[in-house]
Structure formats: C-alpha cells, structure tokens
Design a protein around this nucleic acid. Sequence first.
DNA 1: CAGGGCCGTGACAGTTGTGTGACAAAAAAC
DNA 2: GTTTTTTGTCACACAACTGTCACGGCCCTG
Lengths: 229, 229
Amino acid sequence: MKALVVDDDRVLADVIAFTLRREGFEVILAHDGETAWRQWQAGEPNIVVLDVNLPGIDGFEVCRRIREQSDTPIILLTVRGEENDVVYGLDVGADDYVTKPFSPRQLVARARAVLRRVSQTAPQDAMQRAGGLSYDANRRELSTDDGKTHHLSPLEGRLIGYLMLNPNQILTIDTLIDHVWGPDGGDRDMLRQLIHRLRSKIEPDPAEPTYIETISGTGYGLNIPSESD
Amino acid sequence: MKALVVDDDRVLADVIAFTLRREGFEVILAHDGETAWRQWQAGEPNIVVLDVNLPGIDGFEVCRRIREQSDTPIILLTVRGEENDVVYGLDVGADDYVTKPFSPRQLVARARAVLRRVSQTAPQDAMQRAGGLSYDANRRELSTDDGKTHHLSPLEGRLIGYLMLNPNQILTIDTLIDHVWGPDGGDRDMLRQLIHRLRSKIEPDPAEPTYIETISGTGYGLNIPSESD
DNA sequence: CAGGGCCGTGACAGTTGTGTGACAAAAAAC
DNA sequence: GTTTTTTGTCACACAACTGTCACGGCCCTG
C-alpha cells in the first residue's frame, strides 16, 4: 500500500509520513506541486495526502490532474476556516479532507475509510515476506519457516517490519531507533532489549542467532539465505 | 417517481420540492425526523433527500432506519465544513451527498445519477453470511454454525454487520467506534463493553474467543475459517 | 593484565490495555 | 403508567507492553 504525502511544511510532512509508515504504508514525500505530480506519475500510489497550499502548482491543480487519469483516493489537507477550499476541493475530485490541525490518528482513520469506500476490496494486505519469514502487520504475527507463528508486540512488529524491508543489510543503531521510536524516542538500551525480545521469539536458538545478526559497534542486520538470485 | 424531501428549513425544502416537481417528481415533505420516518413508512418513495441536522431524530438515524429496510436511494444534505458528516453519512448507507449551499440544478443532477446507478444493480437482501455465521439485519438475528440463533441489540447488530463485511481483517478501535457510534459518539470503554456483550452471545466459550480476535493496542478482527462455500 | 566499551541476558516495576461484573440511566416495549 | 431491553459508566483484576537497571562476558587497547 503506497501513499504519496505532499506538504510544503517538511516537519508536518515527516510526522504524517512516520505515522503512515507505522501503519504499514510505504510513503513517498513531496514538498511542492511539481514534484508531487512527477512522483505520482513515477509510481502510481494507492492514496494521496495532499496539502492545498503549495508552492508552484497548488493542491487543487494537482488533484485535478490526478483525477483526469485515475480514481486514486485523494485526501486534502486544508486550513480550518477555509471552507471554500473544501467545497472546491471536493468539486475537483478529492475524496475527503482533513482540516489542520489534526491528529495523525485521525488522518490514518480517514485514509482507511476512504480506501474502504473507494475500493470495496480488502483494504490492506499488509503482508511482508523475506526468505522464510512472513509478517502480517495487521495481526502483528510473524511466521518462521518452521511453520510456527509468533505474536509480536507493537514495537517488535515495527522493528521486524523495518528489518524485513531491508534484508541482508546492516542497519545502524540510530537508524533503527529512529524507525521504531521516532525522532525523539528511544535509546540504545531500549533497542538492545527489543532485539533481545524479538530474538527470543523468533530465533530457534537465541544464543546463536540465525536471522538477526549483530555488528558490534554499528548495528544489526537481518540475514536471509539468498535464494537463487 | 416519488421523492421524500426532509429539511427543517421550510423555505429550502420548498425550493427543492419545487425544482423536483418541475422535473417530474411527486414530492412529499417533512420537516423533522419523526415525520420523515412516518412519511417514508406510509408511502415508500423512490428517493429520499435528507438533511442531516433535524430536530428530533437526526438525519443519520433516519438514514440508518431506512437502510435497514430498503435500498431506497438517499441523498444527504450536509453543511459545508462538517466533513465528518459526509464520511459517516456514507457509512450508514447514504448513496450520495450534497453540501449546502447548492444549486437546485445540482441536486437534481445528483438525484438522477443516483437513481440511474441504483436501478442498475440488483437489490440486495439484508442477509449477510460469513463462514458459519449468518446475520439478518432486518430481524437483527444472528445464527451461528451450531444452529443457534441469537437476538442482537441495535449496536451489537451494527458491530457484527461491519465485522462480517470485513472478515479476516483487523479493524482498528477507532474505525470500529466510528462505524458503530458515528463521528462524535463512543469511546473505548463502550466498544470494549460492546465486544464483551457480543462475544458472550456468539462465542461458545467467551474466555477463548473463536470468532472475534483481539489485537492488543490495535483493534479486533472477525476470524472466519476459510472453507469452500 | 587491567580497564573500558559494547553486548546479551534476566529481573523488576510502571504504565497501559483488556476482560469482566455490577449497576444506573435511558430507551423501548407493553 | 409499568416492565423489559438496551446502553453508558465505573471499578477492579489481570495481562500485555515497555522502560530501567544491574550483572557478567567478550573484545579491544593500552
């Protein structure tokens, strides 16, 4: 499930992106109309979160162009009190809108509602695979290749989700902390503990980790036996 | 072609009525929820134009009641800026919405579009099936695969109906609250209680739920064993 | 060999989330 | 009007989740 987030306020855009990623979306960012339009053409996303006030091409115009080519759900971000924006936005084809300021949770709920409405099909198959592992982000259940499934806590889920997105790579400690706790949370102790808890659930022998490798002084990596590549 | 127009603003209602009559509709008027409901039961109209803000029973409730018994097309009239109303309105079964202020011509165009769309699709009965469960929304009775039928309360009915619409998926707490109570109602305690009551009716052993699964920190899901229908 | 990072591990407490029963308020049925 | 059903509120126990800390082992450097 791919989402395109467009807002010239980079901080806000990052917050939205973080929230959506945590909910299992793959997020592309853009900070102005032209970029947004190119990004949309490049990899057609499943949903667009679009600020109205943008440098260059404004949100309405982007919305109209997208609507000419596709039914991709579009959620507009408007400033409170600009009711005309909303009316106009829905007129040019937006599916829903959220007025700033809003809570990230609210936005996610809205996004899901729109996706549900537009595509009557199952909204999200948030299933990730990597080697013998498959992770269902909705249920937070991870299946190992020995057929067992383990229920993960929210943080464990975020961690394994990010690792499976970047298998066979070394991810630095700070990168991991950022992705699990966000910009202002988390320290090394917590990550160490989280890795420990995850290992104890998914490693056949936690003392000799198969999946999660430690690179001392740097970070961790998820080892996936390379199939015939 | 009979139309029921409901709006507490008598002037506006008259304008709409006039326009629709000019377009060949036979129009019945109502200015509050109770009257609307009675009028609808009296002579079942072909289409309903329904203001959201009504004295007494509000538009959502009228919409829901009508939807329980029939597929009659419903167009909601919402005030611009009340974006929640739109989302919730479509959720409880409205077919389309028009934001005030609007031009009568616009309303007529929408009405025709909806009528065209609805008449194409076959009417659906109010019976839902999912795995061993079957739910009759009219009688609000749910049958489990062990042959027992349980009478559900209105809220329980809405909850199970929504779960059965999205089986084998995890629905977030907020999504469920939105769907059962609407944009401004309901909190987590109430949902917890409702889940509890529903479980105690349909689960063979409420301590070990078969159907309704809990994902701590996220929400709930209806588990249906995938078998051949 | 000593000391200092770094890491794995276990234990523990604080916080939050969840299931459950009881009860009152409200609504609906009679 | 009364009675029954339905719904909201609250309290409490228990479970899940997370953060913190301490200890011991390993590797490296001096």
